[in-house]
Simulated assay, not measured.
Amino acid sequence: MAVNMGRSSGSTLREQYLTLKVMADNIRSQEQFLMMVDREHIIPDMARRLSKEAISEDLISNKRVFLDFLYNMLARTGPGEPDMDIEFHYLIIDKGFFEVDKSILWMQENEVVIPFEIGEKFGKTIVGEEAVDAVRKIIAFYKEAEARFDREHFGDLDRCTLLVLEEHFPQSSWHIRMRLPAKILNDHPISI
């Protein structure tokens, strides 16, 4: 995937955000193509395997470029720029299953669904490799981040939200939605 950073380093945050949106759409179309190839049984096995290998390698590369671009964009964000938030939807079943349902990057009211691996890796930095006490760890992490952004944003907590829903039937599970200013990613770097 080729990314044009513009004529100068002075491209606006909105332009960068739109570039990020195009990158996310391209990644999503590659993921959909892989699913389609998997379901199509009239494609010969060799052709299916080779096309999946080629697209998979390109997909991983595109996700890495996306994450690098996102980190660079967040690093260059300063005061007076539009607010950028990150939102993760997690599903925790019993005590051992931890999964990201959705990862979203917000710029004011605009959203971009970003690769789930970002939410998954970020979640694992919070709860660790073992999902033991994941809900408690996420709540503790959120409280610490909320206190930090409360100080930095002078009491404006509209950008920090945490919703924890517990489900008892058919089995015990938790649905967690956490939204924080996107610069939290700079404090907890991840890689794909």
Rank of each mutant, 00 (worst) to 15 (best):
L34P: 04
L165H: 14
A2V: 08
L67K: 07
Q32I: 05
L67H: 15
N186D: 05
A75Y: 05
K21N: 14
H153V: 04
V113L: 10
E40Q: 14
E129V: 09
I184T: 05
A75F: 01
R159V: 02
R179V: 06
L67C: 04
G155F: 04
T12I: 08
F69Q: 00
I139P: 03
G80A: 04
T77K: 14
M1L: 13
M107C: 11
S56D: 02
A2G: 09
G123N: 09
P82T: 01
S191C: 06
M178C: 09
D156G: 06
V113E: 11
G6H: 11
N110T: 13
R49W: 01
A140H: 01
V135R: 05
E166K: 15
V112G: 00
Q108P: 01
L13T: 15
W174P: 10
R7Q: 14
I104G: 03
E167L: 15
I43A: 04
D156P: 10
E129F: 11
E111H: 05
E57R: 09
R14F: 12
Y142H: 12
T12K: 11
P181C: 03
E109N: 07
F141D: 12
I86Q: 00
I43H: 14
F98M: 01
E53C: 10
K121D: 05
S51W: 09
M46P: 02
F149G: 01
D58L: 13
T77P: 00
V132K: 11
S56A: 14
S56H: 09
M178D: 09
L74K: 00
R179P: 05
E40G: 03
S103P: 07
S61R: 13
A134P: 03
G6P: 15
S191T: 10
F116K: 15
A75N: 03
V3K: 06
V37H: 08
H168L: 15
L70I: 05
D94V: 07
R49M: 13
I114L: 02
M35C: 08
F98Q: 05
K21R: 15
D83L: 01
S11I: 14
F169R: 13
P115I: 10
I118G: 06
E15V: 15
D101I: 06
I138A: 08
E166R: 12
H168F: 09
R159M: 03
H168G: 14
L185M: 04
E31R: 12
I138E: 06
M84H: 01
D68R: 10
P44D: 07
I43Y: 07
V3I: 14
F69D: 00
I93Y: 03
R136Y: 07
K124A: 06
R39T: 11
D58P: 00
Y71M: 01
G119A: 05
G155P: 07
N72W: 00
N72H: 02
L163M: 13
H89Q: 02
R159W: 04
K183D: 09
R64M: 14
R148T: 08
L13C: 13
P170L: 12
A2I: 14
R49N: 11
G155Y: 04
G10H: 15
L13S: 10
A47F: 03
A131I: 08
P181Y: 12
L91G: 08
Q32K: 07
W174K: 14
L34H: 03
I60F: 01
R179L: 08
E40N: 12
N110Q: 10
E120K: 13
K183G: 03
I114P: 03
F149T: 02
D94T: 10
R76M: 08
L105A: 00
V37A: 05
V164L: 14
